[in-house]
Amino acid sequence: DYEVGESVTVMDGPFATLPATISEVNAEQQKLKVLVSIFGRETPVELTFGQVSKI
């Protein structure tokens, strides 16, 4: 299970290999909103559970 505030690594898509912090969890739809730090700015990205891995 994923929790808000948890650190994960993006495994898929254009942000693969980047660390991210979970900002929202939708367990019903198996989706997460995460904040990816790009060029010093936090960018919100919506991903599925399968696109991230716990650190």
Rank of each mutant, 00 (worst) to 15 (best):
F15E: 01
K31A: 07
L18E: 05
E46M: 08
T17C: 12
K54S: 06
D12G: 07
F39E: 14
V45K: 03
S23W: 14
V45N: 02
I38K: 06
D1A: 13
V25L: 06
R41A: 11
V8M: 02
I22V: 11
E46K: 04
A16M: 08
T43C: 10
E42A: 06
E3Q: 14
E6A: 08
I55R: 09
K31P: 02
S7Q: 14
G13N: 02
V10M: 05
I38A: 09
E3P: 03
G50N: 13
V52D: 01
I22T: 01
L35W: 11
L47I: 06
S53L: 10
I38P: 04
P44A: 15
Q29W: 08
E6W: 07
G5L: 03
V52I: 07
P19K: 14
E46P: 04
E3W: 11
K33G: 05
V36S: 01
E24H: 10
T21Y: 09
G13M: 02
Q29A: 12
G13E: 02
S53K: 12
F15K: 02
L18D: 02
Q51I: 03
D1N: 13
V8D: 01
E46A: 06
L18R: 08
K33H: 09
R41K: 15
F15L: 05
K54H: 08
Y2S: 00
V4G: 02
G40C: 07
L47C: 07
L32S: 00
A27Y: 15
Q30L: 09
G5E: 02
V45Q: 04
Q29F: 09
S7F: 12
Q30W: 07
A27S: 11
A16Q: 08
Y2Q: 01
V25N: 02
Y2M: 05
F39L: 14
Q51W: 04
E3C: 10
R41I: 15
K54F: 06
A20F: 03
F49E: 02
A16S: 08
Q29V: 09
Q51D: 06
K31E: 06
G13S: 03
K54C: 04
S23T: 15
M11H: 06
M11E: 07
E24D: 08
L47G: 00
I22M: 01
L47M: 07
D1I: 13
V25P: 01
S7V: 15
K33N: 07
F49A: 02
T17G: 15
V45G: 03
S37P: 06
M11P: 02
V4C: 05
L47E: 00
S7D: 08
F49I: 04
I22Y: 00
S23G: 05
S23Q: 14
L18Y: 14
R41W: 11
T21A: 05
D12T: 12
S23K: 12
R41D: 08
S7H: 13
K31Q: 09
S37I: 15
K54D: 03
T48E: 11
A16G: 05
G40P: 04
P19L: 14
E6P: 00
V45D: 02
M11A: 07
T43M: 10
G40K: 03
L32Y: 05
I38R: 06
K54Y: 06
R41Y: 11
T9G: 03
I55G: 11
Y2D: 00
E6C: 07
S37K: 13
Y2N: 02
T43F: 15
Q51E: 07
V4Y: 04
G50P: 06
F39N: 15
S7A: 13
E24A: 10
I55M: 11
E6H: 06
S53I: 11
V34G: 03
K33D: 03
L47H: 00
P44F: 15
V4M: 05
D1T: 13
V36H: 01
N26T: 05
D1V: 13
V36G: 01
T48N: 12
Q30V: 04
K54V: 05
V45I: 12
I55H: 11
T48K: 10
T48M: 11
V34W: 01
L32N: 01
F49W: 08
A27W: 15
E3H: 14
V10F: 03
Y2A: 02
L47W: 01
K31Y: 10
V10W: 02
V25W: 03
V52T: 03
Q51A: 06
E3Y: 14
E24W: 13
E46C: 07
I55F: 10
K54M: 05
I38M: 09
Q29L: 12
D1G: 14
T21S: 05
M11G: 04
E24F: 10
V45P: 00
P44K: 14
P19V: 15
T48L: 11
V52N: 00
V10T: 01
V45W: 07
D1L: 14
Y2T: 01
T21G: 02
F39G: 15
V36C: 05
K54R: 10
K33W: 15
G13C: 04
L47T: 03
T21C: 07
T21K: 11
V52Y: 02
K54L: 06
G50E: 13
L35F: 09
K31V: 13
S53P: 01
R41T: 14
E28I: 10
F39P: 06
A16K: 12
D12H: 12
T9F: 13
A20S: 04
S23N: 08
L47Q: 01
P19C: 12
K31M: 13
S37T: 14
I55C: 08
V25C: 05
S37V: 15
Q51S: 06
P19Q: 15
T9D: 04
I38G: 08
T43P: 03
G50M: 12
V4F: 04
L32W: 02
F49G: 01
E6S: 07
I38W: 12
V8K: 00
S37G: 07
E28Q: 11
I22E: 00
A27G: 09
A20E: 00
P14S: 05
E6D: 14
K33C: 10
V8F: 02
V34R: 00
V4L: 07
G40H: 05
I38S: 07
I22C: 02
V4K: 06
Q51H: 04
Y2E: 00
P44M: 15
T21P: 02
V34F: 01
K31C: 07
E46F: 08
G50W: 14
D1F: 14
R41Q: 13
L18F: 14
S53G: 09
G50S: 13
A27M: 13
N26D: 12
S53R: 11
T17A: 10
S23F: 15
F49H: 03
N26M: 12
V36A: 02
E3G: 08
P14N: 05
G13R: 02
E3F: 14
E6N: 07
Y2H: 04
K54G: 05
E3D: 08
D12A: 11
K54Q: 06
L47A: 03
L18N: 06
L32M: 08
V45M: 08
T43G: 04
T48C: 10
T17Q: 12
V10H: 00
I38Q: 09
V25G: 01
E28K: 11
L35I: 14
V34L: 08
Q29N: 10
V8Q: 00
I38L: 11
K31G: 05
V52K: 00
P14V: 08
A20K: 01
Q30I: 03
N26R: 07
E42Q: 08
D12P: 01
P19D: 08
G50T: 12
T48V: 07
T43L: 13
G40Q: 05
V8Y: 02
A16R: 12
T48P: 05
T48D: 12
P14I: 10
L18P: 01
I55S: 10
G40M: 05
A16P: 02
D1H: 13
V8C: 05
F49T: 04
V52G: 01
E42T: 07
G50C: 09
L32G: 00
K33A: 06
R41E: 12
V52F: 02
V4W: 04
Q29P: 03
F15H: 06
F39H: 13
S53A: 12
I55W: 10
